[in-house]
Design a protein around this nucleic acid. Sequence first.
DNA 1: TTGTACGCGTTATCAC
DNA 2: GTGATAACGCGTACAA
Lengths: 391, 391
Amino acid sequence: MPRVKCPKCLKVETVLRAGFLRGRQRFLCKECAYHFTIHHDRESDKPTRRKNHETTIIDIAKAMGLAVSTVSRALRDHPDTSMQTRRAVKKIAEELNYRPNSLAQRLSKRETQTIGVIMPDIETYFYSSILTGIQQVASKAGYKVMVCWSNESHTDEVANTHAFMTNWVDGLIICHSKETKTFDHIKMYLKKDIPIVHFNRVCEEVDTSKVLLEDSNGSFQVTEHLIQQGCRRIAAIGGPEHLYVSKMRLDGYLRALKKYNIEPDPKLIFHSDLTIPSVLGVVDRILESDIPVDAIFSIYDAGAIRVLAHLKQRGIKIPEDMCVASFGNEPMGEFIEPSLTSFDPHTFKMGETAAQLFLDQIIEGENFVAKTKVVKGNLVVRQSTLRNQNL
Amino acid sequence: MPRVKCPKCLKVETVLRAGFLRGRQRFLCKECAYHFTIHHDRESDKPTRRKNHETTIIDIAKAMGLAVSTVSRALRDHPDTSMQTRRAVKKIAEELNYRPNSLAQRLSKRETQTIGVIMPDIETYFYSSILTGIQQVASKAGYKVMVCWSNESHTDEVANTHAFMTNWVDGLIICHSKETKTFDHIKMYLKKDIPIVHFNRVCEEVDTSKVLLEDSNGSFQVTEHLIQQGCRRIAAIGGPEHLYVSKMRLDGYLRALKKYNIEPDPKLIFHSDLTIPSVLGVVDRILESDIPVDAIFSIYDAGAIRVLAHLKQRGIKIPEDMCVASFGNEPMGEFIEPSLTSFDPHTFKMGETAAQLFLDQIIEGENFVAKTKVVKGNLVVRQSTLRNQNL
DNA sequence: TTGTACGCGTTATCAC
DNA sequence: GTGATAACGCGTACAA
């Protein structure tokens, strides 16, 4: 029995539902034998203290003489609601310009349909293209994406993680800051079975799904290419030693040397903190020393591009005097002069893959097992290493 | 009177608070004359149906024999709580690893402390640097930033707007997609006094705070510089005609011509849709026609960079045969050959300003009036226009 | 200073 | 099918 007053006798107990009229619930008062529908527009029942009161399912329920629960179900096409009710409810909802309050939904369902993404920065193409990939896949699956960046600061990363986890997101897709060496902020949430996916800078200590680039293999290809161009004294500029990607990219470099029976020279292997001054510092050290060097392999593009400019400024000819190659294939590499040979790691694909692994984990639930995927890339050869062409 | 059982007589009415012991609330049973504190760790009262039950203020309250409200207040340093209670509550909160449920907070306070940012894309430095600026200012004020991008699609923009507004965010900072010509999705929220700040591509129809770059003035400076380099037949490649920024940047171009008594030639003014093919199409049309042109001014950098490459490929010498200049000063412009003269619009500053205007509006509340701010930039002269140097 | 009780908007779980 | 009503976790008048 609906809880609706008869406009004539003002009784509640005597009112029955009596079909639909133009998509609106119709009522019949047994006593007065009076048919009527409810008009919601004029009345304002409680002039709710809040001014900008968004219409809620309660408003809809009142307007239709239905129970909130029924409205809730009808809106979500719950199987045990009649088609007529659904249609009627949706119509009124539309008229009242109803929009579900996702906050309340999430509080009630304890589920946010949102993925939190934490990355070191978003100003480089490398990271923003990954983000685009994540977004693409996530939104197709009905997930929203929230982004934070740590500015390569461990403290910020931890703060972001907690902020996200405190009921903002269903899980995390993260690339650690270069400072990060402890992972308690990840482990504590992993214990609670919250989905976490790592990409690029992963954490070996924990059992999460991970997406990696062809760090080792890509570097191998770059180095092999340099060797094929006749380079024998190839300097490598790596990143911080504790970073897994750093290790892997140097590993590929070393493997290539080995394949061609070139003895790796420790004096040719440098570490930077991935900042420009630090990379250029390395270049200066190379130039000022009397160690012969015929190629520089930088493990990331932004560095290589500065290196190119720096070398040109000093009158060193590229690729004749020195080849330069790197890893990343940022768009800029195509336009500088000479254009930069670089390994294209397919970062967009990495984003897609990370999001997919995240969704897999959600779907598989309990019986989920962490996977590690490696995204294939390809070497892009350009002017900065093309010696043969010039012979 | 606290609602705590005496461990001896099991009565509730006889228990009194009796100071603090090692930061914990201490109790006294009048009847048994027994002093005790509560230990929360062993008991699990209700084994809440949820497994990963996050500790809530209710848990803390129970553990301490306090009321939820007291805990709530103590945690937020509400003036009418004693320092001792605050300390004790915070200590237990820490021990129980309590983290406030921001969902619940927001639902209850009807305030999210979050700014939604909608921009056309995030892969270009132009937009990502603006974002960084926003983030910087917002986070200092305790605001979170959520980002969505429309991929220059009006439909996506509208969807994003609604998603944000449905209780995700306190307000919006937005740059419209290039497709967007109707603004109902903005107006409907503006009516509800929800703070909205426009940047770059603003909407003239609505009364919001806006941040603009020196679109007209910057273009003026670029054009003036070209004229000073001896150019007289300067082609301008603009964007879609309906975009305000497009108009403004062309306006600056025209003003500069006027200042130097150069008759603007309509055949030298082109519109593109800001895509590369469209821009290069314009260049081809210029080259294939017999209209004399000695400079190209592109209203955005990404286009100019491609134009440079395109011209070089065709054997046209820059700046001797043709000067190229643009607006944006993307990092790439510094590294291409010849390096690109461009107006640096200070996008980071624009982000900061937008966020600040947003915060102003929140603070000023009722008596807020929309402001429009213009962020000053500066011309960066580089090789692509430096003719005099080569004489 | 602290406690009680209710609101915030939805969903879920019962009854009917 | 539909209707009450209790969560969900927190903030806050109002009362004590």
